[in-house]
């Protein structure tokens, strides 16, 4: 199999903002800024794998406090209920709101863990120079990048409850420290997905063994 013609193999760089294809000669003679949109041109994201690793480790560590500590407390008629992320899902399910419970479970519990595992797998597969299932891995990356933001549902839900329910003795909702860790997991995994360069999945295609 002959090596596919990529921007990199021809010495060119594709602008990550506007998509303009700029030759290596232009960059050498003029500058490394895109002639169309002024963004700094990189053939590949810089230190993609090590940055992704670092962010994934940080996210995995924070995943623990995010799930152990409460994210919100509801005080109503003198009774107080404290929820962790999972506790909130169980409470929704018990009150018969199954559809909403499933949505929150997927967004808050499944998606963060899935993102961390999927990105770890992608990084390791690139480091091991895995040659199979490139298209499926590309699809996995696209999917991971797409779903990441949806985990913010719980943070928004908490922000709405604490802003709305403040009737002193009758009913008050307060946020818990788990919410900070949880938001950090979501944001750090978003940065991890942005740090990973999907072109690395394809870079050794067609190379001689």
């Amino acid at each position: 199999m002959t090596a596919p013609v990529t921007a990199k193999s021809t010495g060119a760089v594709s602008c990550h903002v506007c998509g303009l294809l700029v030759s290596g000669r232009y960059i050498a003679e003029h500058s490394a800024d895109c002639p169309r949109c002024d963004a700094v041109l990189h053939s590949r994201k810089i230190n993609s794998l090590s940055r992704t690793w670092a962010l994934l480790i940080a996210a995995a560590v924070l995943y623990i406090p995010a799930n152990v500590y409460p994210v919100l407390t509801l005080v109503s008629f003198g009774q107080s209920t404290t929820n962790t992320i999972m506790g909130g899902v169980i409470e929704l399910a018990q009150s018969g709101q199954l559809v909403i419970a499933v949505i929150v479970f997927v967004a808050s519990v499944f998606v963060p863990i899935f993102k961390i595992v999927a990105l770890l797998f992608l990084v390791v597969s690139v480091q091991l120079r895995l040659k199979i299932q490139r298209r499926k891995r590309a699809l996995l990356y696209r999917f991971t990048e797409f779903i990441g933001r949806w985990s913010m549902i719980d943070i928004f839900m908490i922000s709405i409850l604490i802003g709305l329910v403040k009737l002193q003795a009758l009913a008050t909702v307060t946020a818990g420290p788990g919410a900070i860790a949880f938001a950090a997991v979501v944001i750090i995994t978003m940065f991890a997905a942005m740090a990973f360069d999907p072109r690395l999945i394809w870079d050794d295609e067609g190379e001689r063994q």
């Binding site: 596919p4 013609v5 990529t6 921007a7 990199k8 021809t10 060119a12 594709s14 990550h16 998509g19 303009l20 294809l21 700029v22 030759s23 000669r25 232009y26 002639p35 169309r36 590309a138 990356y141 696209r142 999907p198 072109r199 999945i201 394809w202 870079d203």
Partner: peptide, 23 residues
């Protein structure tokens, strides 16, 4: 695919943002 590689920068070709293949 034959590609004219003699360009300074071009809008006639585009590299895939996710795999870098030139089209």
């Amino acid at each position: 695919m034959e590609i004219d590689k003699d360009f300074s920068y071009t809008e006639a070709l585009v590299a895939c943002p996710e795999c870098d293949l030139i089209h």
